[in-house]
C-alpha cells in the first residue's frame, strides 16, 4: 500500500487523489480536516496524512494531536462537575464548556429511581449532539433501545490518559488486525480486568488489585508513547508482569 499523501492547511485536494467510490451514487463525504470552498474546491485545514475510504466514499485528514473536539456518537469518559435541576454538568475535556447529561438518561431511570451521581464521579457516555454553536449533550443509554450498553457510572478502578490516536485504535472493531493492539489480549490471559475507552483520550481500568490495575494502565501508556508494535507490546507486558 502506498504511503499516504501528506497535506497541509491551505492545500487544494486535486481530483486525482479522490477515491473512486465502489458505489458511484454515494455523495463524497468530507471528514475532519477538510473544507469545501464553493463551487468545487476542497482544501485541507489540518496538517496530516490524507485518508480515503472507498466503501463510504469519504476522505479526511488524520490528526492525532491537540484537544479532543466532541463529535456526535463518540463514546467518552466524562467527570461529573455539578448538578442542577434535572441535569448533570459534566466535563469531557478540561477548560471547555460542560456537557449536559439529563438525569433520566440512564437505563430504567424514572423520576423516583434515578442514579445519584456526586461531583467527581466518572461516567461512560455517548455524545448525543455536539455542534460548534451548542454545548454537547451526552447520554448514558441508547435512546432507541433504552439499554445502557455498558454506559453509566464507573465505580472504582483508575483513569489513565492516552493519546487520541491510541483511543481510536482501542475502539476499532478489529483491535489487533486494524489497531495493532495485542497487549490487552496478552494481559487478559493471566489477569482479569475491566476496561472502558473514551475517545477523549481517557481509559478506565479496573482489576483485582492496585498492581494489576497499574499493570494494564502502564502497558497502555508505554505502547502509546513509544509507538510499540505487536511483538514489543508482548515483551513489555511480560516485563511488567514479572515486576508484579
Amino acid at each position: 500500500m502506498a504511503t499516504k499523501t501528506l497535506v497541509f492547511p491551505g492545500d487544494i485536494i486535486s481530483p486525482e487523489v479522490l477515491p473512486i467510490p465502489t458505489n458511484p451514487s454515494l455523495p463524497l463525504k468530507l471528514g475532519p480536516g477538510l473544507r469545501h470552498v464553493p463551487p468545487s474546491t476542497i482544501t485541507s485545514t489540518l496538517a496530516g496524512p490524507l485518508c480515503i475510504d472507498r466503501k463510504k466514499n469519504a476522505i479526511w485528514v488524520e490528526n492525532n494531536t491537540g484537544r479532543y473536539i466532541p463529535q456526535p456518537n463518540d463514546l467518552i469518559i466524562a467527570t461529573v462537575h455539578h448538578s442542577s435541576t434535572d441535569i448533570y454538568h459534566c466535563s469531557i475535556t478540561p477548560h471547555t464548556a460542560f456537557a449536559q447529561l439529563p438525569q433520566l438518561a440512564f437505563e430504567g431511570a424514572t423520576k423516583k429511581t434515578r442514579p445519584q451521581l456526586n461531583s467527581g464521579s466518572l461516567i461512560y457516555a455517548r455524545i448525543l449532539s455536539a455542534s460548534k454553536h451548542t454545548d454537547p449533550e451526552i447520554v448514558c443509554y441508547n435512546p432507541s433501545t433504552g439499554k445502557s450498553e455498558g454506559m453509566g457510572e464507573l465505580k472504582g478502578g483508575m483513569l489513565f490518559d492516552i493519546s487520541m490516536a491510541m483511543a481510536r485504535r482501542l475502539l476499532m472493531h478489529k483491535q489487533k488486525a486494524d489497531g495493532g493492539i495485542a497487549l490487552l489480549e496478552e494481559i487478559g490471559g493471566k489477569v482479569a480486568f475491566e476496561i472502558a475507552v473514551g475517545r477523549n483520550g481517557k481509559v478506565w481500568v479496573k482489576s483485582g488489585g492496585v498492581n494489576e490495575t497499574l499493570l494494564v494502565g502502564r502497558a497502555l501508556q508505554e505502547t502509546d508513547t513509544q509507538g510499540l508494535g505487536i511483538e514489543e507490546q508482548v515483551k513489555v507486558v511480560r516485563r511488567l508482569m514479572r515486576q508484579v
Partner: peptide, 8 residues
C-alpha cells in the same frame, strides 16, 4: 494542534 487553519 487540531485547530483548523486556512493556510500556513
Amino acid at each position: 494542534t487540531s485547530i483548523p487553519l486556512s493556510m500556513t
